[in-house]
Each structure stands twice: as C-alpha cells, then as structure tokens.
C-alpha cells in the first residue's frame, strides 16, 4: 500500500509539472534531435541572425519565414542588440520563477508550511531548479530559448562581450553531464520537488515538516527511478550527487551576477530576480 501512495504522488507531480511548464524535456529533445521537421527552430549563431531573430525572442509563436520582416537599416548597433537580448533573458527567467512557484504550490504539504518558510525554500531552490530545467533545453552545441522556437549556438553565446561570454559555459558543462542520466519529465517532476523541499536552507523556521515532506518525495523518487530505469541501479545515488554540483554552479553564478553589478552600471536586474539573489550565499 505504501508504494501505491508513492506512485500516486509521482503521478500527481508529473501532471502538475506538465501544467506548470510550457516546454517539456520530451518536446525539447524532439526539437533538438530534428525529429520534428515541421517546427525546426530559428537558429541564432551570429550578430546578424540575432538582430534578425531578436524580435521573436520570448514570442510563444514566431511568424513563418514569409511573414518575417526583412532586416532593415533601422536595426540597433550590435552592442545594444546584445544587451536587449540579455534583458529579455531576465524577463523570461522571471516568468519561469512564477511557473516554478505554481509547481511548488502543487507539492502536497508545501502550502501548509509557514509562509516565510515557503519563501525561503523557493528563494534557495529557484536557481537550482532553473538550471536543471535549462539542461533539458541544451546539447553540446547550444540551447533552445523562446519556448523552443529559437536555437542559440554555444559558440555565439561564448562570443558575447566579457563577462557575459563566460557565464554560460559552466552551465553547458553541467548540462552535458546531467543529460547523461537521461531523466524524463516524470523523473524530473520528482527531482525538482526534492530540491525545493530541502530542510537545510538557511533561515528556515520549522525544519521538521520540510524534512518530512522531502523524505516522502525521496522515497517516491527512488521507486520511480527503479521502475522507470531498471537498467541503471545506481541512478538514484547519481541523481542525488548532482545536487552538490548544482549548489556550486548556483553559488558561482550568483557571484558573477554580483560582479556584474559593479562593472555594468546600466545593467539593472529584474526586481523578482533581485529578491531571489539578495543575500543568497
């Protein structure tokens, strides 16, 4: 009877994951593998294609080739296009924060926790969760953006002016390794829940109820991985190990953002992202 409950929990979280997130890993992998030739993404690989495609960044539906306006003389200088792109990344990240929040609210027991603890859990888990979800959109050559409608190459991201060009490389390296575990969306739903319900986040008022929920989630994840990946007996342990690498990745990222604030005076961080990053590590 206990395993039936754990299976029901996995199913519930998978369903709310599908409701909360517009682009699943399954869809992203289909686009990246080119299986779905009808919706091949628009590729941004240089300044010219960025300027051509930037008006569609964060569009949920980009116009077909014949309806796309031709690149004209009115385009901004490349530097501004780059900055505008970075701003739209921030906007999409803020939107993703609200999607993750909706997902967190669907984890049984989460909304019954002290509201301040809900904030703490989300604040500390948020960037970890976003990086895990970003891995689903990446391969060694680049990443999908704009709900899978644009593919931006890794080389082009690397060519961004300092320090932006260096910021994505560690995420690619992490993603390539993480993707080797071959988790699917139903595994991810549980893994993200486990990350969110971490009892060791600084400043939690009531640790025990958080740990109790996480304990159940962990048992559900272990069972899920056993059933879904019978050929990888060590997968549960490997997935848990990724949580350590993830914390390092996030703390490096936050540090780069702090440095950015000193060097890029014009760069203003979205207020929601500011809330999350303030006093984080």
């Amino acid at each position: 009877p206990e395993s039936a409950d754990l299976r029901a929990l996995a199913k519930h979280l998978y369903e709310s994951y599908l409701k909360s997130f517009p682009l699943t890993k399954a869809k992203a992998r289909a686009i990246l593998s080119g299986k779905n030739s009808d919706n091949a993404p628009f590729v941004i690989h240089d300044m010219r294609s960025l300027m051509e495609g930037e008006q569609f960044v964060n569009c949920r539906q980009i116009p077909t080739q014949e309806h796309r306006p031709v690149m004209g003389a009115l385009h901004p200088p490349p530097d501004e296009a780059e900055l505008r792109f970075l701003h739209s990344c921030q906007f999409r990240s803020a939107e993703a924060v609200s999607e993750v929040t909706e997902f967190a609210k669907s984890i049984p027991g989460f909304v019954n926790l002290d509201l301040n603890d809900q904030v703490t859990l989300l604040k500390y888990a948020m960037i970890e969760v976003l990086f895990i979800m970003m891995a689903a959109l990446m391969n060694k050559d680049g990443t999908l953006i704009s709900y899978g409608q644009i593919f931006m190459t890794r080389e082009f991201l690397k060519s961004f002016r300092k320090p932006f060009g260096e910021m994505m490389e560690p995420k690619f390296e992490f993603s390539i390794k993480f993707n080797l575990l071959e988790l699917d969306d139903s595994d991810m739903a549980l893994f993200l829940s486990v990350i969110i319900l971490s009892g060791d986040r600084p400043g939690l008022l009531n640790v025990k109820p958080v740990e109790d929920i996480q304990e159940t989630l962990l048992r559900s994840l272990e069972l899920q991985l056993k059933m879904n990946h019978p050929d990888s007996p060590q997968l549960f342990a490997k997935v848990l190990q990724k949580m350590t690498d993830l914390r390092q990745l996030v703390s490096d990222h936050v540090q780069s953002i702090q440095l950015l604030k000193q060097t890029e005076i014009d760069m203003c961080l979205h207020p929601l992202l500011q809330e999350i990053m303030r006093d984080l590590y």
């Binding site: 609200s98 909706e102 909304v111 509201l115 904030v119 989300l122 207020p271 929601l272 809330e275």
Partner: peptide, 20 residues
C-alpha cells in the same frame, strides 16, 4: 517580508498570471 514582496505575492495568489 518586505524583502520578498513579489515572491510573497506569487505564493498567495491563485493560479492567475501575476504581473511581473
């Protein structure tokens, strides 16, 4: 609470989209 105004709002709102 003041420090995390938007997060509080997101948590307390229903599923309706929040103005970001």
């Amino acid at each position: 609470k003041e420090k995390h105004k938007i997060l509080h709002r997101l948590l307390q709102n229903s599923t309706s989209p929040v103005d970001l």
